[in-house]
Design a protein around this nucleic acid. Structure first.
Length: 938
DNA sequence: CCGAATGAAAT
DNA sequence: ATTTCATTCGG
């Protein structure tokens, strides 16, 4: 109840006005009910209105969830965090250092110090951070094409989120979750189908939770891919299964068709893959697996691209195919089935067998193998199994009734992506059982997915009989079976594998093309496109894939085993296979493991089938690998990543590929690319790993350097503050500031200022060796990093700067103020309001800012005088740093600007004392630091 | 859950 | 022009 209301509100608020109404509609339960009843119809509708559909689904989900677990859904939906900007990166990287130096400082204080450092930071170094931030952003955007920075005012409160998912960070999965799940709250996010990844925090990512999440994502993707294929797997998973394939399809499709909505999904998928790979690679340890350049992911990307290009060619192919007529359909089916089978084999075999203990012989074998793994992680598995069965059971019901949604809903948001394949991995690897949850989540996906699932299920169900409950239910929807088959066929033809769930974009295509049976024709063309390109890529990919596939023995084994198993299970598949054979001679082995397919393809290369098969194989392999890697990675991480290497290679490759792909994808970021290339490490992968790598690679400056800088810096800050010459109006500043108590701000700033001086103190240590030593002691890690040199460099720079303090200052001064800077300026103005010697109030910086040097010169004399007096009187604590022996040396370096700053400070101090501003005792501190400086100068 | 910082994006 | 939001984590 509540949830529904919330959803409505949120939805309305969150998204653009256009969609809101729809969402509102969603609110209506009746509609939802209808939808549930008529899946097929709904799908069609979806075609026309993807967004709407999504919304509905989301809404529906929300409603359902509301009934059951509104919160859950929402939580998973959480949208990806916006990428960090350069400054944030810097903060992230250096905050720890600051804290170490100044344990007493709270984050705010540390932030201020960081800001100071940032201000002081050489432009060159800043550039590094900005570049990285840019790259990161680009990658992120690619991953989440539709991502919005500011989802309008409506805050996605997500209040309920926490219920199911413990993890805050759950990044919604790109495919479905982003759109489908839109929790009511997230309406805003809904507008943008962005995926929810958790790129943002590498640190968080580092945590087990992150790993798990990553694993989930990975799993989710695979599931999606597999699900569609496998009949066995329960319905819910199927729905999700689509997601991976779907994503790929989207990617391909998008490449061909640049549709706004679809892009998001695609990016998300890639992104996920990338993440997965990266995560895995990270776990594995950084191996130089660039060879992976051709990683499956990359290949996929290529395929997509190629598909677009090939469209022209495809048309030709299509013509030829058309001649074939009905066969094409069969062929497609066969291919699809094959793919499905393969996936099924992998996924279904493992999962279902393990969970359901399907009768399939081949599966049994696999299951045993898996079981071994499972045994390893018995606990987890157990938990998972327990959950799964329930979910499975529920799922069927869900198909019939929504009531279940609530249960799943929570998981759905996060797990949508979870793929079947991964699921098995989950069983094997996942200790947490999260994976399992994910599977259920898959089921969650509620509306859209369900529909799709149903279709898919129907197809699969034939074979699925093994699973009693599900099959029964599935079968019930006999009508859907046919549709599902058609749908799958069409999807295959189009190249949308998974299509589905998310489906918004994919659905559109699919539906549009295949809404009915006639869709096939439409579908064909897309296929051709994809294929043609795929072929190209496939060849290369195949080789690559093969490599990748090797590592995951599981996959291979499973695939081989599956093949036999499939025969029995997938009656359909067998018949189809023949058709397939007709297409590509090479593919004969439906069951063939991916590797075999790839090889054949690679060898035969030319045949279309081969391409397709390759695709499927690639996809599977990717998924499976990714899953495996992700799982392993997760497990490893969970364990503490004791086992680094096993999957690392694959993953690494993926990550790299993905990264490369992303880069390539982003034409705009070419510049960045170059940079990335230059910095191999930086350029590596966007994924977490990449991010982490890059992040780590970012130069970390020793506090000392900053400290020194800080000494000189203060003026800069002031300058910045001064920059806003108009400070007089500071009051006009944003309402925000007004809202907040100026007093508080001022006070806090002063406090911080105090802190600052302290920082410098530490840093004040003059000698490099000393500093370095200090750093090493404190931050061994830094020493480890190549960055050390960076640090050293900066330090040198700093020295230089100190020697010639003016240089840095002017640069800073010159820089144009950014919007944020404006704020800063305001604040600074406010905070720095100082009374001039005259006694009238003026922004401290104003004079300095405009013409720092000149002013400085002017002020110097005064300042010095004042300082002298002050010092004499105050000379209290002032700055430890100054107090330190270093003081004198530093003082020597001080430039006029510094003096000017001091003077400004002095003025402030005076003003505070005399003026009302001083309401706080703080003023003392302020003046103190400057005072020391002044003394030194004298 | 606020805040302090900066910056990018969105409104 | 202004607001939002990203990270961080103590209070």
């Amino acid at each position: 109840m509540k949830g529904s209301n919330r959803n409505q509100e949120h939805s309305s608020e969150g998204e653009g006005a256009g969609k809101r109404p729809k969402r509102k509609c969603l609110q209506w339960h009746p509609l939802l009910a209808k939808k549930l009843l008529d899946f097929s119809e709904e799908e069609e509708e979806d075609e026309e209105e993807e967004d709407i559909d999504k919304v509905h689904l989301l809404e529906a989900d929300g409603l359902e969830q509301d009934v059951g677990e509104t919160e859950d859904d929402e939580s998973p939906e959480q949208r990806a965090r916006r990428p960090m900007n350069a400054f944030l990166l810097f903060c992230k990287r250096h905050r720890s250092l600051v804290r170490q130096e100044h344990p007493k400082l709270d984050n705010r204080g540390a932030t201020k110090i960081l800001a100071d450092w940032w201000a002081v930071l050489d432009p060159k170094e800043k550039q590094k951070y900005t570049d990285m931030a840019k790259e990161y952003k680009d990658a992120f955007m690619k991953a989440n094409p539709g991502y919005r920075w500011c989802p309008t005012t409506n805050k996605p409160v997500k209040s309920p989120t926490p219920t199911v998912n413990p993890r805050k960070k759950l990044w919604a999965f790109p495919s479905d979750s982003s759109r489908d799940l839109p929790t009511p709250k997230k309406a805003k996010t809904e507008e943008i189908p962005q995926l929810n990844f958790g790129m943002a925090d590498p640190t968080q990512m580092g945590g087990l939770s992150m790993l798990l999440l990553a694993g989930e994502h990975a799993l989710g993707t695979p599931e999606a891919s597999t699900t569609p294929c496998r009949p066995d797997i329960s319905e819910s998973p199927e729905l999700h299964q689509k997601s991976p394939l779907f994503q790929f399809a989207e990617i391909s499709s998008r490449t061909s068709q640049p549709e706004g909505p679809s892009k998001q999904c695609q990016a998300s998928a890639l992104f996920q893959f990338a993440e997965i790979s990266s995560s895995t690679s990270q776990l594995g340890g950084a191996e130089p697996v660039k060879r992976c350049g051709n990683s499956a992911l990359f290949q996929l990307a290529e395929m997509c691209l190629a598909s677009e290009e090939m469209k022209m060619e495809e048309t030709k192919l299509i013509n030829s195919k058309e001649s074939d007529g009905g066969r094409m359909k069969e062929m497609e089916k066969g291919k699809e089935e094959r793919d499905m089978k393969v996936e099924k084999n992998n996924e279904a075999g493992f999962q279902k067998e393990a969970e359901f203990e399907k009768p399939s012989k081949g599966n049994i074998r696999e299951s045993k193998d898996f079981r071994n793994f499972e045994e390893l992680q018995v606990d987890n598995v157990m938990a998972v199994k327990l959950e799964d069965p329930k979910e499975m059971r529920k799922e069927p019901e869900d198909d019939q009734k929504y009531s279940h949604f609530p249960d799943f809903s929570y998981s759905a948001s996060s797990k949508i992506i979870i793929s079947d394949v991964p699921s098995r991995k989950d069983h094997m690897c996942h200790p947490h059982g999260i994976m399992f949850i994910e599977d259920p989540t898959m089921l969650n996906k509620p509306e859209k997915i369900k529909k799709k699932k149903k279709k898919n299920k129907l197809d699969r169900h034939g074979s699925d009989k093994s699973t009693p409950k599900k099959t029964c239910k599935k079968r019930q929807s006999s009508e859907s079976d046919i549709e599902s088959v058609m749908y799958t066929i069409e999807a295959v033809a189009k190249g949308d594998w998974g299509v589905d769930k998310l489906g918004e974009t994919p659905r559109k295509k699919v539906r549009t093309s295949s809404s009915g049976k006639g869709g096939i024709l439409d579908a064909k063309p897309p296929k051709k496109k994809v294929k043609s390109k795929e072929k190209k890529a496939s060849k290369e990919k195949c080789s690559d894939i093969i490599k990748e596939s090797r590592p995951p023995d599981f996959l291979n084994i499973s695939a081989s085993k599956n093949a036999p198993g499939e025969g029995p299970e997938g009656i359909k598949a067998e018949p189809l296979t023949p058709t397939e054979d007709a297409l590509p001679p090479s593919l004969p082995g439906q069951t063939k493991p991916e590797d075999s397919d790839c090889h054949r393809k690679t060898e035969t290369c030319g045949s279309r089938k081969s391409e397709r098969s390759c695709k499927g194989a690639l996809y599977k392999t990717l998924v499976s690998e990714g899953m495996l890697t992700s799982l392993r990675a997760n497990v490893d991480r969970g364990k503490r990543s004791s086992g680094k290497g096993n999957s690392s290679d694959h993953e690494g490759c993926w990550s790299e590929e993905s990264w490369t792909f992303n880069q390539s994808g982003t034409s705009g970021s070419k510049k960045f690319k170059k940079k990335l290339r230059e910095d191999s490490f930086l350029g590596s992968a966007k994924l977490d790993e990449e991010f982490e790598k890059k992040f780590n690679s970012l130069p970390q400056y020793s506090p000392l350097t900053f400290d020194r800088k800080c000494v000189s810096i203060p003026r800069k800050k002031k300058k910045t503050g001064n920059m806003s010459s108009e400070s007089t109006k500071t009051s006009k500043g944003p309402f925000q500031s007004q809202k907040k108590n100026l007093f508080h701000k001022i006070v806090s700033k002063y406090k911080h200022k105090k802190e600052k001086p302290n920082v410098p103190e530490k840093g004040s240590g003059d000698k490099w060796s000393h500093k370095q030593f200090f750093l090493d002691a404190i931050h061994p890690t830094e020493a480890i990093f190549s960055e050390d040199r960076n640090t050293t460099e900066p330090a040198y720079k700093v020295k230089n700067a100190l020697s010639i303090p003016n240089t840095p200052e002017p640069a800073a001064m010159q820089e144009p103020l950014v919007g944020s800077q404006k704020r800063k300026a305001r604040k600074t103005k406010i905070t720095h309001l100082v009374r001039t010697a005259d006694g009238r109030v003026s922004p401290a910086g104003s004079t300095l800012d405009d013409k720092p040097k000149e002013q400085l010169h002017r002020s110097l004399p005064k300042v010095t005088e004042t300082y002298c007096s002050d010092d004499c009187s105050h000379n209290t604590v002032e700055e430890p740093r100054s107090s330190t022996p270093e003081m004198p040396a530093v003082s020597a370096f001080f430039s006029l600007a510094a003096l000017a700053e001091v003077a400004a400070m002095e003025n402030v101090h005076r003003g505070q004392r005399s003026t009302s501003l001083t309401h706080d005792g703080q003023p003392k501190e302020m003046p103190q630091a400057p005072v020391l400086i002044s003394c030194a100068d004298q």
